[in-house]
Design a protein around this nucleic acid. Structure first.
Lengths: 338, 338
DNA sequence: TCCCGTACCACAATCGATTGCGTCATCTGA
DNA sequence: TCAGATGACGCAATCGATTGTGGTACGGGA
């Protein structure tokens, strides 16, 4: 069972392979007479010709592959984004290549080099750090790329994320409405845009409500349960009074729950808690966690759309920043201050 | 910033490209003098040479792409397997292409056809149904493929999974040790090997303990919370007495929790519950869910290793079935019968 | 000294499709 | 009737790496 190649089709149609190539390619079809086009098309049909993307890619330097770079697929934040992106990409005839950097810069660089060597047409990157050399290089090299979820300081690349500031404001407003006046923020690492953005938004929201100035903003070392527990432990040890915590994300919130339990403080009885990202199944927790929901799938899809418009050259110009709407899911981890 | 090609390395080392190719390839290195190998290797290193897999693939008729097919990336069961597989594959110079079938047979077929046209060297498939035409075709066509997590009836392809039977036995043993004698099983769909296997193992375990014959085995329509709730609702409505449930997986267990709560039955007070897969963060639930843990990452890695050994032809022979060890994570959703 | 085997490497074909360029035939208009 | 324009297609180079074949230099044995 031999694979049919273009030369076979050409021979069957009685034309030169070059002509057959033009006849089969919609872009160049006009250079061939309609009659010949028909003959070639029919021969291709009859022989069951399937073009070889490898050979085509070698010549055209395009692979129809899009790389998506995430720090850790097992973090429930990313799979919905992957799905959203994949849907758009396959629709457009592209194939998504997922790569997991394990939160490691060296791995990330290696993986991206590998994919570039393979001729990947563009990247969707969810691993951006606030100062990111690798991404600066990519931007400088003119490789089509779109950031999702996390941005960089330089804003050289298009970015798709959630409206972090509004999310934080919704959280703070909700807590204030419940009577809280001593609200802490255990945010994400300062080398991520989300960590910085949410912390800044938190400070601003708190000030707007005229609450006591904020010596209650701490950055966790990572977006993990452990880092959250550690930071919450330090907050508790500091003996500063607080009745509510806005966590940098849900995993950090998990850590806060642990630390509160260990310290014998009840949630939401003594401390209200709000997470970020609205991971699945938060409603099953004890207590069900109030959280800010981001439109993850839509973020992935939007990033893919923007990337494609850059890949096929139809969109140039300065990189756009697009912020999608968020929503506060109120559950039982927040309660009126007693 | 032009890409370095083999010819550049050859020129820098003062040899012919063909020689450079042989020097860089471990298979053919012996045909080149050690001194030359060193010169070429050093030049390649210095110039930062990265071979072009597309060109190589054109000549060798290999793409170095491996497709991994999962029903739904957002199901926490799959990301760890993806990670495990990816690690092994990139190590071996392959690139993983992830594709999400959305639990839809038509989508699955389309995606796989697409990847085959692209020259994908093999597949890791986690979507197998018990009777699966598509996989039968693949096996017949001789496309290298490995099943993971779910098997087919025909067993034509290598399979890597958890030791389901032992997992179920551990669960039942645990419940029996707590004094339960009326144990129900709300299993997965019968068109999946996991659903069938776990149900069969459940029946066997129950019989071995001499418990009353089991009219308490029900198959849910899907591995979802909704299907679990629905099945649990029917079980409750049937008024059959039971004090414990072994769920087909954790999502089904979630549904059971919902149904119990709606029916005013407490867990673990009145009904003990055990899940399957040990999703992350089950310890944060109310109540923390006892569950059977599968070595997901290792399953993915093992599947990748088996696939690679088939792709490079070093392993032929009949398809092997490999069952990895499982573990029962005991938490608070199981309690002595009162 | 001559011959032959061996080791090492260069040359060029090859994988399959794309594409710039050249050629031929046909058509148009003067 | 002929120059020039136009359309349709063939030719061959090209993408970058791999690999079968052939050639050269060196060594050892007679």
């Amino acid at each position: 069972m031999q694979r049919i190649k273009l030369a076979d089709v050409a021979r069957a149609a009685g034309v030169h392979p070059g002509t057959a190539s033009r006849a089969l390619n919609p872009e160049t079809r006009e250079q061939v007479s309609p009659a010949t086009v028909r003959r070639v098309a029919r021969a291709a049909q009859r022989l069951g010709y399937v073009p070889n993307p490898v050979a085509r890619g070698l010549r055209t330097a395009r692979s129809f592959l899009i790389g998506m770079v995430v720090p850790d697929v097992t973090n429930p934040l990313f799979p919905p984004m992957v799905r959203g992106a994949e849907k758009v990409l396959t629709q457009a005839g592209y194939t998504l290549v997922l790569t997991d950097t394990d939160n490691d810069a060296a791995t990330e660089r290696r993986q991206i080099e590998l994919l570039r060597a393979r001729g990947t047409d563009g990247f969707i990157v969810a691993t951006a750090r606030w100062h990111d050399d690798l991404l600066a290089e990519i931007a400088a090299a003119g490789v089509p790329a779109v950031l999702v979820n996390r941005n960089t300081a330089s804003a050289e690349l298009p970015y798709v994320g959630g409206d972090e500031r509004t999310g934080v404001r919704l959280a703070v407003d909700h807590l204030v409405a419940l009577g809280h006046r001593h609200i802490a923020h255990l945010g994400g690492p300062a080398d991520t845009s989300t960590g910085r953005e949410r912390a800044a938004a938190f400070r601003q929201s708190v000030l707007q409500h005229g609450l006591p100035a904020t010596d209650l903003v701490w950055a966790c070392a990572a977006y993990t349960e452990e880092a959250g527990a550690e930071a919450a432990g330090r907050l508790l040890a500091s003996a500063r009074p607080f009745t509510a915590v806005v966590a940098g994300n849900d995993l950090i919130a998990f850590g806060v729950l642990d630390a509160l339990a260990r310290a014998g403080r009840s949630c939401p009885g003594e401390v209200s808690l709000i997470g970020f990202n609205d991971m699945p199944h938060l409603d099953k927790l004890a207590p069900p966690l109030t959280s800010v929901a981001l439109p993850l799938a839509e973020m992935g899809a939007q990033a893919a759309r923007i990337l494609l418009s850059r890949v096929d050259g139809s969109a140039g110009g300065p990189p756009a920043q697009s912020l999608l709407g968020v929503e506060l899911k109120v559950r039982a981890s927040t309660a009126p201050v007693t």
